[in-house]
């Protein structure tokens, strides 16, 4: 019973006897710990390897000498420029709309709050392709709103940069909303009360008291949102299609370059990796420390 496992760990307890008094229990359970630690450590290393090895593979296979030449190749430059534009646009829209939504969830007594919140964060768990299909059915030419929108304003979303921005916003904004909502819930609302007794209007309070309080959350939410927008693939390809310079963002370019110029795809991947790492470093207080 008690003394079977220790042998494996190489630490044998002195007393072989079966009786286990209170203190003896401590002594005989001690040898078990290392073996549990060994197992857990092995599994942890395995998990780490799962993340690390692909990164090493990507870096190892990237033709480092060709980077300067590939990174200025028209395909890479075009995709990078478009990605920067669309992801920043998505970030801007997400901030302008997402912060009020977070406020709405955090501060208003919303009926069916959980249901509404679930809808708002659904894109975080929804396969992006499904999101793209849903966007098409809503804002496509035959979509619920897309048809009337095009008739009235002449604006068409599918196959346009605006569509790519919309797809990116769709999948990325929830990250900002949940992060900012958490920040708003943590913020001390009594500080807002204090400000109001000093004669501050609601707008002044949000600007001078609430916003500084949630600034760390907002920063983290914006970084996450932007990173997600930058990496967006499924919804974009489904909703906005793929056209160089118009809707072909970096991830789409990587996917297609794999077919024609794998090395360029690796370089582009490495570039995306570098950006992701930069975002993590930016968020280090949040995710890199326990």
């Amino acid at each position: 019973m008690p003394d079977t496992a220790p042998a494996a760990a190489g630490i044998t307890s002195a007393d072989p006897g079966p009786p286990r008094p209170a203190q003896g229990g401590v002594a005989s359970s001690r040898p078990r710990l290392p073996s549990a630690h060994v197992v857990l450590t092995c599994l942890a290393v395995l998990a780490l390897a799962l993340f690390l090895v692909p990164l090493v593979g990507l870096v190892a296979r990237t033709p480092l000498t060709r980077i300067p030449e590939l990174i200025v190749s028209p395909a890479v430059v075009q995709a990078t420029r478009l990605s920067v534009v669309t992801s920043l646009a998505a970030l801007a829209i997400s901030t302008v709309l997402g912060v009020p939504l977070a406020w709405f969830f955090a501060r208003r007594d919303v009926p069916f709050a959980n249901l509404l919140r679930a809808i708002a964060v659904l894109p975080m768990v929804l396969p992006p392709v499904v999101g793209g299909v849903a966007l098409l059915l809503a804002f496509g030419r035959r979509g619920l709103l897309g048809g009337p929108l095009e008739q009235v304003t002449g604006v068409r979303l599918p196959f346009t940069t605006a569509g790519a921005v919309m797809a990116a916003t769709f999948v990325a904004m929830p990250f900002l909303v949940v992060t900012v909502e958490a920040g708003l819930r943590q913020a001390d609302q009594r500080l807002e009360d204090a400000a109001s007794t000093l004669g501050a209007s609601r707008w002044t309070i949000y600007r001078r008291i609430t916003l500084p309080q949630i600034a760390p959350s907002l920063g983290a939410g914006m970084a996450l949102c932007w990173a997600r927008a930058l990496g967006e693939f499924g919804a974009t390809i489904t909703f906005a299609g793929n056209f160089p310079g118009r809707t072909q963002t970096m991830p789409l370019a990587v996917y297609l370059l794999l077919e024609s110029d794998a090395q360029a795809a690796y370089v582009l991947s490495l570039l995306l990796l570098a950006i992701s790492v930069a975002v993590l470093v930016l968020l280090r207080g949040r995710y890199l420390s326990p």
Binding site: D193, A194, S196, T197, L198, G199, A200, S201
Partner: peptide, 9 residues
């Protein structure tokens, strides 16, 4: 509203 009251706290 609180901000209209001229009440210091």
């Amino acid at each position: 509203a609180a901000e209209e009251r001229d009440v210091g706290v």
